[in-house]
Protein backbone atom coordinates (compact mmCIF):
# COMPACT_ATOMS: atom_id res chain seq x y z
CA UNK A 1 0.00 0.00 0.00
CA UNK A 2 2.70 2.57 0.84
CA UNK A 3 4.41 1.50 -2.36
CA UNK A 4 1.25 2.18 -4.37
CA UNK A 5 0.58 5.56 -2.81
CA UNK A 6 4.15 6.58 -3.49
CA UNK A 7 3.62 5.71 -7.17
CA UNK A 8 0.54 7.99 -7.12
CA UNK A 9 2.67 10.68 -5.54
CA UNK A 10 5.27 10.26 -8.26
CA UNK A 11 2.61 10.57 -10.94
CA UNK A 12 1.03 13.61 -9.27
CA UNK A 13 4.45 15.20 -9.02
CA UNK A 14 5.10 14.47 -12.68
CA UNK A 15 1.73 15.92 -13.74
CA UNK A 16 2.35 18.98 -11.56
CA UNK A 17 5.69 19.53 -13.28
CA UNK A 18 4.01 19.53 -16.68
CA UNK A 19 1.22 21.89 -15.62
CA UNK A 20 0.55 24.80 -17.94
CA UNK A 21 -2.40 27.20 -17.84
CA UNK A 22 -5.31 26.05 -20.01
CA UNK A 23 -8.10 27.90 -21.77
CA UNK A 24 -11.40 26.74 -20.34
CA UNK A 25 -13.93 25.17 -22.67
CA UNK A 26 -16.77 27.55 -23.57
CA UNK A 27 -20.22 26.56 -22.24
CA UNK A 28 -22.11 24.06 -24.43
CA UNK A 29 -24.73 26.57 -25.60
CA UNK A 30 -22.03 28.91 -26.86
CA UNK A 31 -20.26 26.13 -28.71
CA UNK A 32 -23.60 25.09 -30.21
CA UNK A 33 -24.07 28.66 -31.40
CA UNK A 34 -20.65 28.49 -33.06
CA UNK A 35 -21.59 25.40 -35.02
CA UNK A 36 -24.97 26.90 -35.95
CA UNK A 37 -23.13 29.85 -37.46
CA UNK A 38 -21.59 27.43 -39.97
CA UNK A 39 -25.08 26.04 -40.73
CA UNK A 40 -26.43 29.58 -41.13
CA UNK A 41 -23.59 30.42 -43.51
CA UNK A 42 -24.59 27.45 -45.67
CA UNK A 43 -28.25 28.53 -45.48
CA UNK A 44 -27.30 32.05 -46.52
CA UNK A 45 -25.37 30.68 -49.50
CA UNK A 46 -28.32 28.52 -50.59
CA UNK A 47 -30.79 31.42 -50.15
CA UNK A 48 -28.58 33.67 -52.25
CA UNK A 49 -28.52 31.06 -54.97
CA UNK A 50 -32.16 29.93 -54.95
CA UNK A 51 -33.93 32.86 -53.27
CA UNK A 52 -36.56 32.53 -50.56
CA UNK A 53 -39.61 32.85 -52.81
CA UNK A 54 -40.02 29.19 -53.92
CA UNK A 55 -39.65 27.99 -50.34
CA UNK A 56 -42.21 30.47 -48.99
CA UNK A 57 -44.61 29.65 -51.82
CA UNK A 58 -44.40 25.96 -51.04
CA UNK A 59 -44.82 26.55 -47.33
CA UNK A 60 -47.90 28.68 -47.95
CA UNK A 61 -49.46 25.87 -49.99
CA UNK A 62 -48.53 23.07 -47.61
CA UNK A 63 -47.97 24.31 -44.03
CA UNK A 64 -47.06 20.83 -42.80
CA UNK A 65 -43.84 21.09 -44.82
CA UNK A 66 -43.00 24.30 -43.01
CA UNK A 67 -43.60 22.52 -39.70
CA UNK A 68 -41.35 19.66 -40.80
CA UNK A 69 -38.63 22.17 -41.67
CA UNK A 70 -39.00 23.90 -38.32
CA UNK A 71 -38.95 20.52 -36.58
CA UNK A 72 -35.74 19.58 -38.39
CA UNK A 73 -34.13 22.88 -37.40
CA UNK A 74 -35.16 22.45 -33.74
CA UNK A 75 -33.82 18.87 -33.84
CA UNK A 76 -30.50 20.08 -35.25
CA UNK A 77 -30.10 22.76 -32.57
CA UNK A 78 -31.10 20.46 -29.70
CA UNK A 79 -29.01 17.50 -30.89
CA UNK A 80 -25.92 19.68 -31.28
CA UNK A 81 -26.48 21.22 -27.86
CA UNK A 82 -26.94 17.78 -26.29
CA UNK A 83 -23.75 16.54 -28.00
CA UNK A 84 -21.76 19.49 -26.61
CA UNK A 85 -23.28 18.98 -23.15
CA UNK A 86 -22.31 15.30 -23.21
CA UNK A 87 -18.79 16.39 -24.13
CA UNK A 88 -18.39 17.74 -20.61
CA UNK A 89 -17.78 15.09 -17.90
CA UNK A 90 -20.36 15.04 -15.16
CA UNK A 91 -23.30 16.19 -17.32
CA UNK A 92 -26.29 13.89 -17.17
CA UNK A 93 -26.90 11.37 -19.95
CA UNK A 94 -30.53 12.57 -19.96
CA UNK A 95 -29.31 15.41 -22.21
CA UNK A 96 -29.57 12.90 -25.04
CA UNK A 97 -33.38 13.23 -24.88
CA UNK A 98 -33.28 16.93 -25.68
CA UNK A 99 -33.77 16.52 -29.46
CA UNK A 100 -36.81 14.28 -28.98
CA UNK A 101 -39.61 16.93 -29.13
CA UNK A 102 -38.10 18.52 -32.25
CA UNK A 103 -37.64 15.11 -33.85
CA UNK A 104 -41.28 14.22 -33.13
CA UNK A 105 -42.44 17.42 -34.83
CA UNK A 106 -40.12 16.76 -37.76
CA UNK A 107 -41.20 13.14 -38.23
CA UNK A 108 -44.87 13.87 -37.53
CA UNK A 109 -45.11 16.76 -39.96
CA UNK A 110 -43.16 14.87 -42.63
CA UNK A 111 -45.43 11.88 -42.07
CA UNK A 112 -48.33 14.03 -43.08
CA UNK A 113 -46.62 14.21 -46.45
CA UNK A 114 -47.45 10.55 -46.89
CA UNK A 115 -51.08 11.57 -47.05
CA UNK A 116 -50.25 14.25 -49.59
CA UNK A 117 -52.14 12.60 -52.43
CA UNK A 118 -55.34 12.73 -50.35
CA UNK A 119 -54.84 16.17 -48.80
CA UNK A 120 -53.65 18.06 -51.89
CA UNK A 121 -53.87 15.87 -54.98
CA UNK A 122 -52.49 18.58 -57.26
CA UNK A 123 -49.02 18.93 -55.69
CA UNK A 124 -45.97 17.94 -57.63
CA UNK A 125 -44.48 14.66 -56.39
CA UNK A 126 -40.92 13.53 -56.60
CA UNK A 127 -39.70 10.97 -59.07
CA UNK A 128 -37.08 8.37 -58.35
CA UNK A 129 -34.31 10.48 -59.83
CA UNK A 130 -35.18 13.47 -57.67
CA UNK A 131 -35.32 11.44 -54.47
CA UNK A 132 -31.80 10.25 -55.20
CA UNK A 133 -30.80 13.92 -55.36
CA UNK A 134 -32.38 14.42 -51.94
CA UNK A 135 -30.40 11.53 -50.53
CA UNK A 136 -27.16 12.91 -51.92
CA UNK A 137 -27.98 16.42 -50.69
CA UNK A 138 -28.59 15.32 -47.11
CA UNK A 139 -25.58 13.02 -46.98
CA UNK A 140 -23.36 15.53 -48.81
CA UNK A 141 -24.13 18.37 -46.40
CA UNK A 142 -23.99 16.08 -43.38
CA UNK A 143 -20.38 15.12 -44.01
CA UNK A 144 -18.81 18.57 -43.45
CA UNK A 145 -21.28 19.43 -40.67
CA UNK A 146 -20.51 16.16 -38.85
CA UNK A 147 -16.79 16.64 -39.36
CA UNK A 148 -16.97 20.13 -37.88
CA UNK A 149 -18.92 18.86 -34.86
CA UNK A 150 -16.44 16.02 -34.30
CA UNK A 151 -13.48 18.40 -34.52
CA UNK A 152 -15.14 20.70 -31.97
CA UNK A 153 -16.06 17.78 -29.70
CA UNK A 154 -12.59 16.29 -29.76
CA UNK A 155 -11.45 19.33 -27.80
CA UNK A 156 -13.95 18.32 -25.14
CA UNK A 157 -14.13 14.97 -23.37
CA UNK A 158 -17.13 12.90 -24.52
CA UNK A 159 -17.23 10.07 -21.99
CA UNK A 160 -20.06 8.41 -23.96
CA UNK A 161 -18.51 8.52 -27.43
CA UNK A 162 -21.10 6.46 -29.29
CA UNK A 163 -24.11 8.27 -27.84
CA UNK A 164 -22.41 11.59 -28.61
CA UNK A 165 -21.65 10.44 -32.15
CA UNK A 166 -25.31 9.46 -32.66
CA UNK A 167 -26.29 12.99 -31.60
CA UNK A 168 -23.67 14.41 -33.98
CA UNK A 169 -25.22 12.39 -36.81
CA UNK A 170 -28.72 13.47 -35.86
CA UNK A 171 -27.70 17.13 -35.62
CA UNK A 172 -25.98 17.19 -39.00
CA UNK A 173 -28.66 15.13 -40.78
CA UNK A 174 -31.41 17.35 -39.33
CA UNK A 175 -29.50 20.50 -40.27
CA UNK A 176 -29.03 19.18 -43.82
CA UNK A 177 -32.71 18.30 -44.04
CA UNK A 178 -33.68 21.81 -43.00
CA UNK A 179 -31.21 23.27 -45.52
CA UNK A 180 -32.86 21.08 -48.14
CA UNK A 181 -36.11 22.93 -47.48
CA UNK A 182 -34.60 25.99 -49.15
CA UNK A 183 -34.05 24.27 -52.47
CA UNK A 184 -36.57 21.44 -52.36
CA UNK A 185 -38.10 21.44 -55.84
CA UNK A 186 -41.13 19.36 -54.94
CA UNK A 187 -43.37 18.41 -52.06
CA UNK A 188 -43.09 15.66 -49.56
CA UNK A 189 -44.50 12.24 -50.35
CA UNK A 190 -44.05 8.73 -49.10
CA UNK A 191 -41.04 8.14 -51.37
CA UNK A 192 -39.51 11.43 -50.36
CA UNK A 193 -40.07 10.78 -46.67
CA UNK A 194 -38.47 7.37 -46.98
CA UNK A 195 -35.46 8.91 -48.71
CA UNK A 196 -35.05 11.45 -45.96
CA UNK A 197 -35.39 8.76 -43.30
CA UNK A 198 -32.85 6.62 -45.14
CA UNK A 199 -30.41 9.52 -45.39
CA UNK A 200 -30.77 10.33 -41.68
CA UNK A 201 -30.28 6.68 -40.71
CA UNK A 202 -27.18 6.43 -42.92
CA UNK A 203 -25.66 9.61 -41.48
CA UNK A 204 -26.41 8.59 -37.87
CA UNK A 205 -25.12 5.04 -38.40
CA UNK A 206 -21.89 6.17 -40.08
CA UNK A 207 -21.32 8.64 -37.28
CA UNK A 208 -22.00 6.06 -34.60
CA UNK A 209 -19.56 3.66 -36.24
CA UNK A 210 -16.77 6.11 -37.09
CA UNK A 211 -17.47 9.11 -34.89
CA UNK A 212 -17.57 6.96 -31.78
CA UNK A 213 -14.05 5.80 -32.49
CA UNK A 214 -12.84 9.29 -33.34
CA UNK A 215 -14.37 10.74 -30.21
CA UNK A 216 -13.22 8.02 -27.84
CA UNK A 217 -9.63 8.83 -28.76
CA UNK A 218 -10.20 12.41 -27.74
Amino acid sequence: MPEQSSSHEALIDHLGTGLVPVRRLLPPWLRTAGWLLAVLALAAGLLLHYGAAPMLRRWAATPDLAWAGIGAAITAICAAWAAFALGVPGRRAAWAWLPLPGALLWIGASGLGCLRTWIAPGTQLAGLHQTADCLLFIIGFSVPLSALLIVLLRRACPLRPVLTAVLVGLASAAASASLLEICHAYDSAATDLLTHALAVVVVVAVNAAMGGRLLSKA
Partner: peptide, 13 residues
Protein backbone atom coordinates in the same frame (compact mmCIF):
# COMPACT_ATOMS: atom_id res chain seq x y z
CA UNK B 1 -8.07 8.70 -14.08
CA UNK B 2 -5.34 11.11 -12.95
CA UNK B 3 -3.86 11.07 -16.46
CA UNK B 4 -7.29 11.75 -18.00
CA UNK B 5 -7.95 14.54 -15.50
CA UNK B 6 -4.67 16.12 -16.55
CA UNK B 7 -5.50 15.84 -20.25
CA UNK B 8 -9.05 17.22 -20.02
CA UNK B 9 -8.69 19.67 -17.13
CA UNK B 10 -9.84 22.49 -19.44
CA UNK B 11 -13.32 20.90 -19.63
CA UNK B 12 -14.00 21.57 -15.95
CA UNK B 13 -16.35 24.47 -15.30
Amino acid sequence: TLLTVHRVRHTYD
